[in-house]
Design a protein around this nucleic acid. Structure first.
Length: 421
DNA sequence: TCTGGGGTCCTAGGACCC
DNA sequence: TCTGGGGTCCTAGGACCC
């Protein structure tokens, strides 16, 4: 029997900010998305205020925050990323297998551990003591059950003491608990799927668990059929220890201020293709298609949505090749006039680089260019993103995002260390 | 004054061909 | 007058996640 644990940081971004602001313990905090657009994290105290909704637009609740003395932070990904690495490293010490699933959560393989719940409590204490981040742990015999257990450990009254293992309960009690969980809480079931399931009279996690797998497969596909099996304790999803190779890589961002000028869009697109190219080379891939998109705000009425796909003559991971193609795409879709709100790129048809060289009869990639890319990536890794970049990225800085209230990079910048008075 | 995130994968449906 | 398939490729939009 397999045993999985799902560990995640409670209100992770808010907790990261609090580590360096002990004065904010027990105080309401919210953290905003890129560009200060939406609320993406909130401390328990903030969540308790009526009207503070995750992923809701911030401007709608800005007044409420002022009235209730909520401390508001812009996203500080340098800080959260670094805290995440520390948390993941501590957790990895306790388990033979770890899959980092997102910035604030990971699956652990606890198969063969005699007392997983006791281990989970030790892990929680360790993370809390060493980096000051509170966590919750869910345990089950499949990843889906571990996820659901995590929800129980965090939110279900009576069971929300931070660690929950389904096997703590007899089967009848497990079912009773699952009967109280809406089907939308199950991993992989979002709002739309939950609506459709309700038409089938499947409202709770228990009803999904007990649904006929064949009918689910017919009505909803193999993915949900697998979820049903996982809810029944049959593990179908393995622990992916290596970061999966992406089939597509997206980089896009909204502008701090709307942009009309071609050069501003060109700088943004150059930046995004540079970021995407770095990710592409990190997974040792090459891309054949490059998508470029620009759009105005979807909430205005003079909407323009430009998108095109540029094929490369042969798949590439070279920053200059990618940038040239992306800018050609941008020229094709750019219209003078609209006030653009967002630009982005997509790398598609990604294949492993090694295969490319064996397959193609065309000219071999220039080894000097490859060395240049490796050097560029290495420098940027050591000295920070953007230390070395192509000139097209630097045409204009006008598209930078808005971050009005970002905290210092306490853990990654010497000049921004926390000072203790 | 104005403000609304970012990323990945899947799939339905159209175009095209035999 | 009425009937008339199936596979592949592509893409936009949908759905999900955090």
């Amino acid at each position: 029997m397999k045993t999985f644990a799902l560990v995640d940081g409670n209100n992770f971004y808010a907790s990261c900010e609090r580590v360096f602001r002990p004065d904010l313990a027990d105080k309401p905090i919210v953290v905003l998305s890129n560009n200060d657009g939406c609320v993406v994290a909130a401390s328990a105290e903030a969540k308790a205020l009526p009207g503070i909704q995750m992923f809701g637009p911030f401007f709608e609740i800005a007044g409420l925050c002022r009235r209730h003395g909520v401390t508001v932070f812009s996203s500080n990904y340098a800080l959260y990323g670094d805290m995440s690495r520390r948390m993941m490293a501590i957790l990895a010490e306790h388990a033979p297998g770890q899959e980092v699933y997102s910035i604030d959560e990971c699956f652990l393989d606890l198969s063969g551990v005699a007392e997983p719940e006791a281990l989970a409590r030790r892990m929680r204490d360790s993370v809390q003591r060493r980096i000051g981040i509170p966590t919750c742990v869910g345990i089950g015999s499949s990843k889906t059950l571990a996820k659901l257990a995590n929800h129980v450990a965090k939110r279900v009254p009576g069971w929300d003491d931070g660690v929950f293992d389904w096997r703590r309960l007899a089967e009848a009690d497990r079912d009773a608990l699952m009967a109280g969980l809406p089907v939308g809480k199950v991993w992989g079931v979002g709002r739309k799927l939950a609506d459709r399931l309700r038409e089938w009279r499947i409202d709770t996690a228990l009803q999904l668990k007990e649904a006929d797998p064949r009918r689910i497969r017919q009505g909803f596909g193999v993915t949900l059929e697998r979820t049903v099996a996982e809810l029944n304790g049959v593990s179908c999803l393995e622990l992916d220890e290596a970061a999966p190779e992406r089939q597509q890589i997206i980089s896009s961002r909204s502008f701090g201020e709307k942009a009309c000028d071609f050069n501003v869009l060109a700088a943004a697109v150059s930046h995004h293709i540079a970021t995407a190219g770095e990710k592409l080379r990190a997974q040792r891939g090459v891309a054949r298609l490059i998508g470029v998109g620009i759009r105005t705000s979807p909430f205005g009425d003079d909407g323009y949505n430009g998108y095109t796909v540029v094929p490369l003559p042969q798949p590439s991971d070279d920053a200059m090749t990618l940038t040239r193609a992306a800018l050609a795409g941008l020229r094709a879709i750019y219209r003078r006039g609209p006030r653009y709100q967002k630009a982005g790129v997509v790398l598609m048809e990604i294949s492993p680089r090694e295969r490319l060289q064996a397959d193609l009869f065309g000219p071999a990639p220039d080894p000097r260019r490859q060395r240049l890319m490796r050097t560029m990536d290495a420098i940027n890794q050591t000295f920070g993103r953007g230390c070395v970049k192509l000139a097209s990225e630097a045409l204009t800085p006008d598209w930078e995002m808005r971050q009005d209230v970002r905290s210092p990079c306490y853990t990654t910048r010497l000049d921004q260390l926390l000072e203790i008075a």
